[in-house]
Design a protein around this nucleic acid. Sequence first.
DNA 1: CAAGAATCCTGTCAGC
DNA 2: TGCTGACAGGATTCTT
Length: 283
Amino acid sequence: MPELPEVETVMRGLQARLEGRVIRRAVVRRPDLRWPLPLDLEARLTGAQVLGFRRRAKYILMRLASLSGEGGTSVLLHLGMSGRMLIRQRGSNAAVLHEHIELETDDGWLVGFVDPRRFGSIDLVPTAMEDAHRLLAGLGPEPLDDAFDAGVLCRSLAGRRTPIKAALLDQRVVAGLGNIYVCEAMFRSAIAPGRLAADVTEAQAARLVSEIKATLLEAIAAGGSSLRDYVQPDGELGYFQHAWRVYGREGERCDQCPGPPCPGVARVVQSGRSTFYCPRLQA
DNA sequence: CAAGAATCCTGTCAGC
DNA sequence: TGCTGACAGGATTCTT
């Protein structure tokens, strides 16, 4: 579920429910996520006012007001592979499996972090030093920023002997793409996933940049369209999965092949991850 | 140094 | 109906 568009959607949902609120209560049920939770997490959350949110790559940052006169603290959240936020009104108290953290707001809402595989993580960082956190410090450009353009991508790919697919998954090259959106953007750019990063031309890089941005924006729009449903316990986010053109479509015909019927979407494994692509269209 | 494999953990689904 | 193995939206750490 959680690549950049999903994280953006989750962040907006949290923003709508939490911004300006005070956390009345915080409960940690399991501290052993991807990394051990800060020992003082409950104490730091309890009584804190939520000032606002920001997303960086696939991380959500929740800024808390200072309690002490010192600088404020930010909560750094990553959803991992299976993490989601569950938002419901107080009173619907049925226990939720794998809900490792639960917050209660001063206006009676419960916000839970649910993550069966526990690849997610939560840490605290001084707000003034958010980007210096070890998990954020090495990240590449935000794909939706104007600063992410063909020149930047080209320079980043230069000399790399790894397939373009793997390079785009590398968060130091561009931050926030995951397996689905890399597959989709490469299909829309008609670039073969096995092509070496160093061999991607300036024109192809320009196409990639433009298709990455378009794909992400469309996905965010689709997630946003179902934002009100985001509180549902099934946790389903958005409708973009219905717009996947190659991901998860092995054997189906792609919608771009001209002339004779498409030979069918292929699946190969690259550095341990499935890649879906059209072998005729993508060169 | 760079590239690929192994790893963390649980759930689901296909096949027998 | 179990059981088994493959696989899953991530990213660090370990090997080559």
